[in-house]
Write a protein that binds this DNA or RNA. Structure first.
Length: 874
RNA sequence: GGCGGCUUGGCGGAAUUGGUAGACGCGCUCGACUCAAAAUCGAGUUCCUUUGGAGUGUGGGUUCGAGUCCCACAGCCGCUACCA
């Protein structure tokens, strides 16, 4: 409101001062293996934030939530003797900069660089202890070089099924494989298939991106195009299995597993009589094969044309046309009303040789399984509905457990009307059926995944160009020589989509021309490419010979020399939350970010990491050992923050009015890190008031309104035992709470401690300094300023983390609760080590207790040492 | 429809292994200071029919004792959706 707002403490002066000091002195620089000041005996701690996309609208309050949490952890771990890697960078490729360029002609690099300047200023204004020497942007040419290099590792690798590992294709060359055979197995390969083409954006999208952009009003349609794909499906099983030892929220693991979508079943072949055609289907219920009374093909299935009879031709064609014009949305939405049409063709059920009709229907998708199903209407909901609508036969083959109706019964039961598997429970019936199919050459057991190969090419300007060349004569592709990396985009002025599905780079004819016979690939990589490996680059960000040195990779993976055995240099740290317990499989010790990346980013990064691991470039098989998802911060109205609702909080304004420490502290005090919680400006005021109280414990204002060190602050031993106890309790609780990421309770304890200091007549300097020590990671500016003002010349940030004095915590007498029949009736004070009998006697002596047990017999007395006494009487 | 999460005062939340429910903060009430206000400091603040009773979404259960464990149900939020 008013610019002359009174400041309860001069944060506007000392916050910029300390930020400048940290910048100039490089207080948070992290030494790397090879540096003069690198200490190999220190254990490493790698704490990572999800780096931001530097959008034009700047930082929002969601960013500082996770960033403050990791900053607290990082600053604490440094002081506990760890070599802490806590870097920051920019996920700076992205569509908005390109769309802005299309509108204005301003080069995306210019827009991006300006946005990075803003983001960096905002992050620095919050006092985060990043090692800015390690700053990276995915758009940096030196970064692009290694993104392209990693792509070439994928391009030059195949998946060895036997070893379940990626291997270089050179192994296949040595075995005499032809070029064509090798191209068929590369982890990066060319594929012509229907893709999601967006006419409005002039680009192709991954399946998982379609809905997001559609929601933003873009148009998307199916269209066959030639695309680069990554063979992530080969890793489907490992991506499920190797999730197990990771310290991730179970919900996120489940989300990934469901996305990969493993299902076990069988592939069954149905012969089309009097023809060479076989229809293959995938089913998870081979035990119901006797109940298959018809088949359904997806409208796009290649065999539709072959099996449709002359008199059904017209109906089938009409139906296919109708389906093609339906959007995916409509197709999904109308799931109550099944549609379909008979092809006129039949297939033979391999178990009983019966001829069953073949239909086409859009409830069968070409993209999953084989694009064809055997329909068992008695025991599949969708088939049941379809059969009822089109009056197809419904045959029971499973006897339900209990008294459920067999029609539409989909749970396991007992096989009936099923020949050789009659009487078997579903699980055994499945196994026996698979064995039969395999013996008779009619099918085999199979595992299917929902996960599709990763559509990796985009028709955009602002992305990494593929380092590939095409031979105009033979149509063969080949890798660009490594010494020609990075391959940057050509300079262009017109960024408008051409409508050519090869993307905007087709206009750069000079750039495309490589030699008389070779021309460049015009596709670029998706934004995911840069974010797939950025954590690796932080470990060695200025290395121009490798994407990461072997030495740095080993150390930051926790494989460095004598480091392995060391748990912590600090005495007895609680090692539950952030310690390195057991065999570490992931490289990053703690990764904090939002749930929006629960599936895609994390899955893609895991995939790349595994390939790099298989090829010997990294020593761990997973990138992120521990993952924590910060909760969403809602607007003051309890709704998601959005410009249209007008409930967006701007962090710059909060910093201006209350200071960076107040913003940091408030975001941590709101509630548990992982919870969704609404913003309350009154809460910021409360936290700001707390900081002012801490300030006034040590500072007082003179007549002239100047702040001077308070006369209450005295450099003498603490004689107030109660105060001493609170201070040491605070050191203990804050230390433990940081370890379990329970920042809100740590802050609440520091408030209790501050209230005790405020009430005290004399503030002992040593004890007050202890509070500043533990407050430091939360409110670094205020704590450093006060520490300096009261006469210390070493920054808190570089001092060892304080230990607490156990003896200050114990009391000679303790208060116990006395219950009668579980209800609180009285409290008694007893000696700390009082024997049970004495406690019991003291409890029974209580007049309140006697009142409540007056007309009753005492049956039992339960004494919980240090807690309570419960007298059971009736 | 499927999967996941959540449900504690007027509000945000605390209660780490089953052991004093409501720490801490916001808001509110009263008091001190002040001509006055702000700021600050202090006291109080779950509810009720207040010698007592009830109480952690609802109903049951286990236990000396349940916010916490078990069963059933309801409501809200998120993700996903004809996955064969």
């Amino acid at each position: 409101m008013s610019d002359e707002r009174r400041k309860p403490f001069p944060f506007d002066q000392f916050e910029p001062k300390w930020q400048q000091t940290w910048d100039e002195e490089k207080t948070f620089r992290t030494p790397n293996p090879g540096d003069a000041d690198f200490d190999a005996s220190k254990p490493k701690f790698f704490v990572l934030d999800m780096f931001p996309y530097p959008s034009g609208s700047g930082l929002h309050v969601g960013h500082p939530e996770g960033y403050t949490a990791t900053d607290i952890i990082g600053r604490t771990k440094v002081r506990q003797g760890f070599n802490v890697l806590h870097p920051m960078g920019w996920d700076s490729f992205g569509l908005p900069a390109e769309q802005y360029a299309i509108k204005t002609g301003q080069h995306p690099r210019v827009t991006t660089e300006a946005n990075i300047v803003t983001f960096k200023r905002q992050l620095k204004s919050l006092g985060f202890g990043y090692d800015w020497d390690r700053e990276i942007a995915t758009t940096d040419p030196e970064y692009v070089r290694w993104t392209q290099w990693i792509f070439l590792q994928l391009y030059n690798a195949y998946f060895d099924e036997e070893r379940q590992k990626a291997r270089p294709v050179s192994e296949l060359e040595a075995k005499g494989w032809t070029r064509e055979q090798i191209d068929d197995v590369r982890l990066a390969y060319i594929h012509e298939a229907p893709v999601n083409w967006s006419p409005s954006m002039g680009t192709v999208l991954a399946n998982e991106e379609v809905e997001e952009w559609r929601a933003k009003g873009e148009t998307v349609e199916r269209r066959p195009l030639r695309q680069w794909m990554l063979r992530i499906t080969k890793y489907a099983q490992r991506l499920i299995d190797e999730l197990d030892p990771l310290d991730w929220p179970e919900g996120i693991k489940l989300l990934q597993k469901n996305w990969i979508g493993r299902s076990e079943g069988a592939e069954v072949k149905f012969q089309v009589p009097n023809s060479k055609f076989q229809i293959e289907v995938f089913t998870t219920r081979p035990d119901t094969l006797f109940g298959a009374t018809y088949m359904v093909l997806a409208p796009e299935h290649p065999l539709v044309e072959e099996i449709t009879t002359a008199d059904q031709q017209a109906a089938v064609e009409d139906y296919i046309k109708a389906c093609a014009s339906k959007s995916d949305m409509e197709r999904g939405d109308l799931n109550k009303d099944k549609t379909g049409v008979f092809t006129g063709g039949y297939a033979i059920n391999p178990v009983n040789d019966e001829q069953i009709p073949i239909w086409i229907a859009d409830y069968v998708m070409m993209g999953y399984g084989t694009g064809a199903i055997m329909a068992v209407p008695a025991h599949d909901e969708r088939d049941f509905e379809f059969a009822k609508k089109f009056e197809l036969p419904i045959l029971q083959v499973v006897e339900p457990t209990g008294d459920a109706d067999w029609q539409g019964y989909t749970d396991p039961g007992t096989a009936v009307n099923s020949g050789f598997i009659d009487g078997l429970p579903t699980a055994e019936a499945k196994a026996k059926m698979i064995a039969w199919l395999e013996e008779n050459g009619k099918g085999r057991g199979q595992i299917n995944y929902k996960l599709r190969d990763w559509l990796f090419s985009r028709q955009r300007y602002w992305g990494e160009p593929f380092p590939l060349l095409w031979n105009k004569e033979t149509g063969e592709h080949s890798a660009l020589p490594e010494d020609e990396l990075p391959l940057l985009q050509p300079e262009m002025e017109d960024f408008k989509p051409t409508g050519d599905p090869r993307g905007p780079l087709v206009k750069a004819t000079d750039w495309i021309h490589y030699s008389d016979r070779l021309e460049r690939e015009t596709n670029t990589m998706p934004q995911w490419a840069g974010s797939c490996w950025y954590y690796l680059r932080y470990c060695d960000p200025r290395n121009n010979d490798r994407f990461i040195s072997e030495e740095a990779e080993r150390y930051w993976s926790g494989q460095g020399g004598d480091v392995a055995g060391a748990s912590s240099p600090v005495a007895d740290p609680p090692s539950t939350a952030t310690g390195q317990d057991g065999p570490a499989t992931g490289m990053v010790d703690l990764y904090v970010g939002g749930t929006e990346h629960a599936v895609l980013h994390l899955l893609y990064a895991r995939f790349w990491h595994k390939v790099l691991n298989d090829l010997g470039h990294v020593s761990t098989n997973e990138p992120f050992q521990r993952l924590v998802n910060q909760g969403l911060i809602l607007g003051e109205d309890g709704q998601k923050m959005s410009k249209s609702r007008g409930n967006v909080v701007n962090p710059d304004e909060v910093v201006r009015d209350y200071g960076a420490d107040a913003l940091r502290l408030y975001e941590m005090f709101m509630g548990p890190l992982t919870d969704t919680k609404p913003w309350q400006m009154k809460g910021v005021e409360g936290v700001s008031r707390f900081l002012a109280r801490v300030w006034r414990v040590a500072m007082e204002q003179n007549q002239a309104g100047e702040w001077t060190v308070s006369s209450k602050l005295q450099d003498a031993p603490c004689t107030d035992k109660a105060l001493l106890k609170v201070v040491h309790e605070t050191v203990k609780k804050v230390t433990e709470d940081i370890e379990r990421l329970s920042f809100n309770t740590a802050i609440s304890q520091m408030m209790v401690c501050t209230n005790a200091f405020t009430a005290a007549e004399v503030v002992p300097k040593a004890e007050f300094t202890l509070l500043l020590h533990v407050l430091n990671p939360f409110a670094p500016h205020l704590s450093e300023e006060l520490n300096q003002l009261i006469g210390h010349d070493t920054q808190l940030a570089t001092q060892p983390w304080p230990a607490y004095d156990e003896s200050a915590l114990v009391e000679s007498e303790i208060e116990l609760v006395v219950q009668v029949n579980g209800k609180l009736r009285d409290k008694i004070t007893v000696a700390k080590d009082a024997p049970k009998e004495d406690i019991e006697a003291a409890a029974q002596a209580s007049t309140k207790v006697q009142e409540f047990t007056k007309d009753k017999t005492v049956r039992k007395v339960i004494v919980v040492p240090g807690r309570l006494v419960n007298i059971v009487a009736n």
